[in-house]
Write a protein that binds this DNA or RNA. Structure first.
Lengths: 238, 238
DNA sequence: CGAATAGTTGATGTATCTCAAGCAGGGTGG
DNA sequence: CCACCCTGCTTGAGATACATCAACTATTCG
């Protein structure tokens, strides 16, 4: 799933369990695919392009660690970041033979590069892929709501809440409401292009939230959230 | 794929070839699934809810004819239509056990209702599903660009161009540029909720396009496009 | 024919964008 | 070690695209 939390290469283990021990039983097959002689491991530093729009889509990437964004460009240069992916997420599965968007690392990342043929031959592989795709679609649906119907303030709140380690798309089920800290491993421009806003609006909204005590900036890219529920209430979702 | 063209229950055969004769060879298996004793055929009239957000997702729907929209609601009533689907498209494949959005018919439609177990057991089934999911994702990516980065005018132009029978997400490859006619089998409210606009803005933009001769209204829901390329140039995509 | 519903148009408001200047932090070289 | 520069971020003033509110018009259906 395109969990945004933990997508940023935070120290510590990813939320989701290692693939081999997932309960569905399908992962044994997936592990075999990962072990295929054609499967490679690749490391890339931050802000490197994994593939470009139009490149042939003959392989598929699983993120081991780090984070990747997928974006599309309009001819006049406008950009929309369409997905942000983290450990365990799959990308490179395009509809046709060519990629429909650019994939770029946000931070230094590691991938397992899987040959498309390997992935598509086994039921287990197909099932694992289908599962990832469904998660991706749910995230894209949620993001369409954000882009189509939420205010700038709601967008930023939604974004920050999703970056909190340990919470995905789900509702505010946090019982403790303990202060959380998030690392925004994205530039303001990237955040703006993800949220369908301008850099200035993102900056203004964050400044405003700081003034209201909803956020405390520990560093430029590091925010403390004293009251997660308060921020959660600003997302428009509850 | 979430082709918008032909999604509206137009008379005539859908663009895509009948499932059995697709060249990939996977469809024999899919046909078997469709022939499963558990598979049912269902008909619904327009504006009926197929399933609601939160309903258990234990089956999967293939559209035989007609059109369906998927939408999500915010607690305060704001709505975002996240997908519009037509013949051949699959829906009901949610990430978890519950549906993440509402599915409602736009026009009278027919479905094949497939048991989730049937669909997920065969490689062919999985592959067919994965293919549909990838197409869906490509459409969602394109739609994120529309919602995040396009002006009202570009959104409406993009929408109308996609409704033209025979053209999907692809570029303007039309050599003839023959006048096309589209049927908008959606209310202004539905269009607005799909494009992330208000009903008034959609109405104003269409009126403006009519005044400029880009559109001719043959009926409320029926538009003639004298110069498709001219409209295409307004989409922001080329 | 008339009510009900869906769509259009106008006047006004406002959230967000645009343009422009100033500021901070992090790295480099003197 | 500190001044300097570069890049990314913030803040302000003004413009604008779209939303909102409200009236009016067309269409549909009994």
């Amino acid at each position: 799933m395109a969990y945004l939390n933990h997508a940023m290469g935070e120290a510590g283990a990813p939320v989701r369990a290692p693939i081999a021990v997932r309960p569905t039983g399908e992962q044994i097959g997936w592990d075999e695919i990962l072990a295929s002689p054609r499967t490679r491991t690749v490391r890339m530093s931050e802000h490197e392009i994994v593939y470009d729009e139009g490149d042939v889509a003959d392989r598929l990437y699983e993120i081991s660690d780090g984070a990747v964004m997928l974006y599309k460009l309009l001819p006049d240069g406008r950009r929309q970041v369409v997905e942000i992916l983290g450990p365990g997420d799959l990308f490179g599965l395009s509809a046709g033979d060519a990629h429909d968007c650019v994939a770029e690392t946000l931070v230094a990342s590691g991938f397992r590069v899987i040959d498309r043929r390997d992935a598509e031959t086994s039921v287990a592989g197909q099932r694992h892929i289908a599962r990832c795709l469904r998660d991706q679609i749910a995230t894209l649906h949620e993001h369409a709501v954000l882009l189509g119907r939420k205010s700038a303030c709601e967008r930023v709140a939604t974004f920050i809440v999703r970056m909190v380690p340990g919470r995905g798309l789900g509702r505010c089920i946090d019982r403790t409401n303990a202060p959380a800290t998030v690392r925004l491993a994205m530039t303001r421009q990237e955040i703006a292009d993800y949220l369908g806003l301008t850099i200035e609006t993102v900056s203004r909204v964050i400044s405003d939230m700081r003034r209201r005590g909803l956020l405390v900036a520990e560093r430029q890219d590091r925010l403390r959230i004293p009251d997660l529920c308060a921020l959660c209430r600003m997302t428009g979702a509850h």
